[in-house]
Design a protein around this nucleic acid. Structure first.
Lengths: 214, 214
DNA sequence: TTTGAAACAGGACGACCGGTCTTTTCTGGA
DNA sequence: TCCAGAAAAGACCGGTCGTCCTGTTTCAAA
């Protein structure tokens, strides 16, 4: 069953298959630990085909970030938050969905954006810019949702900072989850965020001294 | 000044120099992107010397984690929190010190523990266990401090979860900071943690530069 | 049917990887 | 003083890396 294949001649499908395989491999093993030969083998393509669509490994990595990692964040976070009833609902939903998928899978691969951001931000300015942009879009989407439900001008201005905090909490939680290979840190951080965001203070600058038990 | 050197014959110093160079390289470029030849060149040692102290690259990586990354977390976080007046003071101090060092350096290398945890947790069980342990010690130290200042039994029980949240916030903040190459996410998250944990208003950093010894 | 460009095959390439080897140099205890 | 063994040197190995090159196949327009 080797060598019996004919050429499909479907460039877009082949390109998509390479991207899918590369995205999965980069998430699971990292960029530098994945060789182009690995990708060729797993995707069932030859070196010529790979080189035709992606002349260098870097171009493949960049395409994975823009065409796979970005949309993944869009789906798992941005769309979830945007379509939720409240910002907190959306945030908790995103945490919970990912925690559940981790339980189902059994292993924690980590956030594809976070993984690549840490591995490649300093390696190459183009990588850094691509990932910085995704982080910014992500944070802005959360900030918009938070802002939309806060009439108070003071708190609306805080939305941006709060959104950064939410994104950071998630990124760190999944990093710890990866280190201990279970979803518990995600659920813990989700609970803390709920406690923090749940209290709806309409007051002006009345920051809670201590959380009232409710 | 090349080739003029005689043998120092100071095994411990040579071993320490290799570890220092490797730790710096792993933090800046990552484990897989750093070759043993890089380390040999930068540390000014030959292959024989490197192999004598660290037979494999993995053994070097493990030693870096246990003898450099662990103590770095101990110094920058655990000691800082433990010796601070309150848990919040210690946490803010840790954030602020690291943000300041980032400003001084100009580039964000990222948290050495976080960097390696994300790159190596899935690669090897021994790496994973070593880093999981450091995360646990770190979190427990923060939890102990939080617990010590809460007489309420309900809140004391929350200390562990809160500590996980603090560590996650920091890890995520520095990941985003690395992606955008500035310390702003660290300061933002520190302000949000301050608002969440305590009384401190989001003022400019008013933290005493030097803590009184007693 | 012809033809030119795109899509793909398959392997060659030089560089470099991590690791091993043998040899030489140094040292502390007997 | 001697010497067993640790410490360090430096060449060396098989394997693999990312890239590139030369053909071959396929499609669509002429």
């Amino acid at each position: 069953m080797i060598g019996e294949k004919k050429r499909t001649y479907d460039p877009l499908a082949l390109r998509a298959r390479i991207l899918d395989v590369a995205a999965a491999a980069f998430q699971a093993r990292g960029y530098h630990s994945t060789s182009t030969h690995d990708i060729m083998r797993e995707a069932g393509v030859t070196g010529g085909a790979l080189h035709h669509h992606f002349p260098t490994k870097k171009s493949l990595g960049l395409a994975v970030i823009k065409e796979r990692v970005g949309p993944a964040v869009q789906e798992s976070w941005i769309d979830t938050v945007r379509h939720a009833r409240t910002a907190l609902d959306g945030i908790l939903r995103a945490f919970d969905d990912i925690a559940e998928s981790i339980d189902n899978r059994g292993t924690v691969l980590g956030c594809p954006l976070n993984n690549l951001a840490i591995e490649l931000s300093l390696a190459d300015p183009e990588f850094q810019e691509a990932m910085r942009h995704i982080f910014a879009v992500w944070r802005d989407a959360v900030a918009d949702k938070l802002r939309s439900e806060r009439s108070d001008a003071q708190q609306a201005r805080q939305a941006e900072e709060l959104a950064t905090f939410v994104v950071a909490s998630y990124s760190g939680a999944i990093a710890i989850a990866k280190a201990q290979q279970n979803a518990e840190p995600l659920r813990t951080c989700a609970r803390q965020l709920a406690a923090m965001l749940g209290q709806r203070p309409p007051a002006r600058r009345r920051l809670a001294r201590e959380q009232p038990a409710s």
